[in-house]
Amino acid sequence: MKQLIAILVDGSVYASWLFIISAGLTLIYGVMRILNMSHGSFYALGAYSGAAMVGWYFSTGSVPWFSFVALIGAALVAGITVGLLVERGLLRFMYGRDEVVMILVTYAVLLIMEDAIKLIWGVEPYFAYQPYTMLGRTKFAGLSFANYDFMLIGVSILIGLALWYGLNRTRNGKLLRVVIHDREIAGALGINVSRIFTITFLIGAGIGALAGALTAPGLSVVPGMGIEVIVLAFAVVVIGGLGSISGALVGALIVGMARATAVHLYPEVELFVIYAVMGLVLAFRPQGLFAVANARKI
C-alpha cells in the first residue's frame, strides 16, 4: 500500500516534470516541423539565469516569496530573448529544409549555446535551493514528500491548460492550428505563417527555459545538464506522437509511471524502461499515440 502510494506520487511528480520539459519541444515540432535539439540548451539557459537571479535576489535580503517571480521572470526573459535571436537570426533562413537537416541545425545551436553558457556562467555549480526548501514537506502514509514537487504538478497542469486554451479558444491559437494542419493552405489563406513561426518558437523556447528554472531549485545547475534532458524529452514526445500537446501529456504520464514502478519494484531495469515503452508504443502505433495521420502526397 505504502509502495503503491509512493509509486503514484513519484510517478505523477516525474510525469509533470517530463511534461514541462517536453511541452515546448512538441509544440515547436507540431507547428514548425523542427525537432529542436537546442531545446535542452534553452532548458539549461533557464536554469542558469533563474538560479543566478535567485542567488542575487537572496543576497539583497528581500521577501523570500518573491524569489519565485525572480526565478521564473529571469528564465522567461532569457529564454525568449535568445529564442528571438535564434529564430530571427538563424532558423528563418532555413525554413523548408529537410527535417533531418533542421535537427542538425538545432544541434549546432545546442553546441554553440552549451559553450556560450559556459563562457557566461563558468563551470562552477549554481544553486537556487531557497524556493525548494522554503515550501517544506508533507507527511502521509509514512512517507514524506517535498511540497515543491506538488507545486510542480500544479504548474504542469497550468501549462497544459494554458496551451490548450491558447490553441483552442484564442484567435491566434486557431490560426496556429491551421498552420499545423497544412502550412501551404494556411499561407494561401493569408495567414502570416512566418509570424506564427516566430511566436511559436518563442513560446516553445520560453517553456523550455521555464522548465529549466523550475528544475533548478531541486539540484545544482551544472554544465551539460541540457544534454541530459533532450533524449528524455524526445522519448516522451515520440511516445505521445510528435507535435501533439495531449500526446506529450499522456507520454509523460506513461513514462513517469513506468519509471516509478521500475524504481520501486525492479530497480535494475530503470535504464531501459523508457526505451522499452517507446519501442512498445512505436511497434503498435508507429506515429505515436496521438499523432494526426499525414496524408501522403503522391
Binding site: 505504502k2 509502495q3 509512493a6 509509486i7 506520487v9 513519484d10 510517478g11 511528480v13 516525474y14 516534470w17 509514512g142 512517507l143 514524506s144 514528500f145 514537487d149 528544475t215 531541486g218 539540484l219 551539460g224 545538464m225 541530459e228 519509471r259 516509478a260 524504481v263 520501486h264 530497480p267 530503470e270 535504464l271
Partner: peptide
Amino acid sequence: PKLFAGQYGAEISALQV
C-alpha cells in the same frame, strides 16, 4: 539511477519505503 539524472524523487521514496 542514471548518471546525471538529477531527479531522485522515486529513488528517495524507495529508500523511505
